[in-house]
Design a protein around this nucleic acid. Sequence first.
DNA 1: TTTTATTCCTACTAAATTGATAGAAAATTA
DNA 2: TAATTTTCTATCAATTTAGTAGGAATAAAA
Lengths: 143, 143
Amino acid sequence: MKISTKGRYAVRLMIDLAEHNHGEYIPLMDIAKRQEISEKYLESIVSVLSKSNLLISLRGKGGGYKLAKKPEDYTVGSILRLTEGSLAPVSCLEGEVNDCARACHCRTLPMWEGFNKLINDYFDGITIADLVSGDDYSDDYMI
Amino acid sequence: MKISTKGRYAVRLMIDLAEHNHGEYIPLMDIAKRQEISEKYLESIVSVLSKSNLLISLRGKGGGYKLAKKPEDYTVGSILRLTEGSLAPVSCLEGEVNDCARACHCRTLPMWEGFNKLINDYFDGITIADLVSGDDYSDDYMI
DNA sequence: TTTTATTCCTACTAAATTGATAGAAAATTA
DNA sequence: TAATTTTCTATCAATTTAGTAGGAATAAAA
């Protein structure tokens, strides 16, 4: 039950972009160096964010990436759902409809549904703006 | 970010044992058939629960497994932590101390700590007794 | 005592996922 | 035209997940 590096690196990348959010495009290499993450690996992560228009990109000299919105307009949930594929804790909750044959009499389904809601609500309640400040907001994260 | 079959099957196995909790030992094959899970695979899961004394086992004819405690005395959290290895959403929160070099200035650590607490509190608030009844308790699971 | 039923133990394996790496094409600016 | 940067396609090693196989040990019953 782990958040993969894809999701974790994506959040760090978004925080980095928010902390250097001065209107200019920021080359991926700068972020990779600051975050100590391989540029090549970061590339595969940033491409997902870019294709979904969470970021604006520009090729060539002077190019790079910048935020498409204000830091407070990105929830961590939206970033993780994109990069992790889904935040559902069990695969039967991934789609719109639950096509598991056991669903109608499953003893554990309500528990997983409750957990699923808990996860999504938690991460949808945190924005990138909440994370850029150096303050420790841990108390706020505990419901 | 998925709960593996090990954890999910373990919970189903415990529910099955609770639903057939009449003092007799229950052979693993019976559970495997009812739950439609391979007996051989269930074996590897039940051995963890048995070694940790969550279950009482008896070999030979008339043998099998039965609960060591009342269903209401097993939290889902204790079962999942055992079978999943840990419920920590990031590896740096697995041990007693966080030995990640980035920990002291990590922007995301408080968020993961809050999430970690949320997960453990949620599953520690649900017992096997809560799951054996056919009623839909989903509202209770939403905090 | 033999048979039967069961857990317990060790080892193995296929498939999927994770976490990358490599090389080059396309675009943009200077 | 040169330099810089994103974008695209392909590949790959390590790890985890999910499951299988065979047999030894144990206990009860016939």
